[in-house]
Write a protein that binds this DNA or RNA. Sequence first.
DNA 1: ATGAAAGCGCTAACAT
DNA 2: ATGTTAGCGCTTTCAT
Lengths: 352, 352
Amino acid sequence: MARRRQSVTIKHVAADAGVSLQTVSRVINNEANVRPAMKKRVQESIDRLGYVPSIAAQRMSGSRSYLILALNDRDRTIEDWRAREGRDWVDQMLLGGMLKCAEYGYRLIFELVDTHSDHVQRELRAAIAALQPDGVVLTPPHSDNTLITDVLEEEGIRFARIGSRKNGGHIAITMGDDKLAAMATQHLIDKGHERIGFIAGPDEYAVSGWRKDGWEESMSAAGYEVEGLCVRGDWTYASGEKAARDLLGAADRPTAIIASNDQMALATNAVAHALGMAVPGDISIISFDNSPVTRFVQPALTAVDQPVARTVSTAVELLIKAQRGEDMPEMPVVIPGTLVERQSVSAPRSKG
Amino acid sequence: MARRRQSVTIKHVAADAGVSLQTVSRVINNEANVRPAMKKRVQESIDRLGYVPSIAAQRMSGSRSYLILALNDRDRTIEDWRAREGRDWVDQMLLGGMLKCAEYGYRLIFELVDTHSDHVQRELRAAIAALQPDGVVLTPPHSDNTLITDVLEEEGIRFARIGSRKNGGHIAITMGDDKLAAMATQHLIDKGHERIGFIAGPDEYAVSGWRKDGWEESMSAAGYEVEGLCVRGDWTYASGEKAARDLLGAADRPTAIIASNDQMALATNAVAHALGMAVPGDISIISFDNSPVTRFVQPALTAVDQPVARTVSTAVELLIKAQRGEDMPEMPVVIPGTLVERQSVSAPRSKG
DNA sequence: ATGAAAGCGCTAACAT
DNA sequence: ATGTTAGCGCTTTCAT
């Protein structure tokens, strides 16, 4: 196929408007020092010719690439895609990230990186060299991975960390996990529960700790015991099964369980049924994430919704605005989630 | 933030290896006329310095952009994302497309376009001017939209149409929709059904017609009537409800229904329940697509699985290979789907 | 406020 | 088989 060239370039516009390339460039980039009349004339040529700048050329000449890179964990993402269980984290990221990028004339490039491989750094440097993104959105567990953030700092690329509170010179955004967990716990306490179990996520994820903190906070504020009521999982269904068996097999078992994600909540629900316990009659369940599956399971799960789309959208917007010279927020930004009530919570059975 | 420059460029590698830029370029692009020893020396420098070519520069110099554009319908995609009902078409596209691109050092850019707006062409030209993609993957209903294909032909950009049989000079890939529909119909016939209803998709989608053809083919091969057994929907749940009411409210109603997508099948299931009919006892159902929700509904739906990931993966691979000079397939490529049996099909009740 | 010239990192075309 | 030159489309100096 023939060597493809830009059909309409800045030169064509300049010729059409009878001005220099520079003036056209100034108009494109909305710079100062262009008289309104001149600007109008150039803009008309742009519109008439249907001119759109080549981002390759813009990037080449050392300015912006108009590309935002969204980094996700390769294994977990591919596993979710293959499982086809309706987890829509990626879709929500795209919904928030792509649309916000489009608003500003940027594009979101979704990229997978191996968190645990020893060549994360190489992979990342390669992506940066190839694309020269104007900003990077980091999702857990990348958000606090210093292997990654070190590279980005070295390369001088702005980044936003989702699910992180480390904002030194960078953007940090959380969904208020501790407050959400506290809210979920309080919701159960209000229903009359006193023994509320908690299935935590893996340590590698900062959000795991915050969610646990929130649960503990509400429990101790109410004067309830937490000892022996927390089990750690690793987000997987299997780990949720094991955790649920531990909690529900105990002599003084809880009357409610909060699971740190949907998979583990689903597993808890299944284990309860397997043990002949009614949900929510014998055991109430609240899950985190609120992916589509929470609505399809029996009973539909009460869940803490994570506003992924709004969070990523905000991250992208802050990155773009920072590039335009606006200040980045000093403190971690919180995009709070909400509790979505469904059928997996009721008052505990009155004690015989 | 400081003007960012490539940290390691082809110049550094050339200097390090003591050769000309051109030789490095030849090694990068795996071209002929480089002695093995020289190639090895250059490759070592590349590895040592961690050099990765800038795709912006590669594109600028008139060669490849290493970008493949995947075009989807904006409204439908955003609606799916917002609905959060577990439809994973986009995820399966990414699974197939991104991973295949990565294999060849390309990147997939996922882009939304308004099919029905009068400025599709402007939108598309803008995307092409900005990104200069090496190939475009078209999904229904874009695949047969001449507004879109005309622009691509004008710009000289190779494209692959998914769900299209129009391959004149381009790549066409289907999932064998007619055969799949025929297979689903035959499956019901084998179970003893004679009156099998069909809910078709909108005309705008070529696949709608093929699926209907397959149903008709199996029906007439078995010598069964199709008159009054086909109703057209528009993919939505609401249209499926209406279609199902039409079919199930008739005097001589069908004992089985094939719906052309999951949403309409779900609606059919709900309508059957509302009318006091048992599924599959009174009415068997088969759906198309096999998105996650088919497994979560009661009863789990027998469905025709659409191998979206494999299809997109193939599309991308053919585009890349074509760019490398390999021939494009003359005929439409078929990536056949399969029938996934679940609980929504049984033999019809014996006639009283 | 506008223009001219230099250069970004790379490859195509043409040397040798 | 390797090197040299020109130029892709744009922005950044630096002039005017």
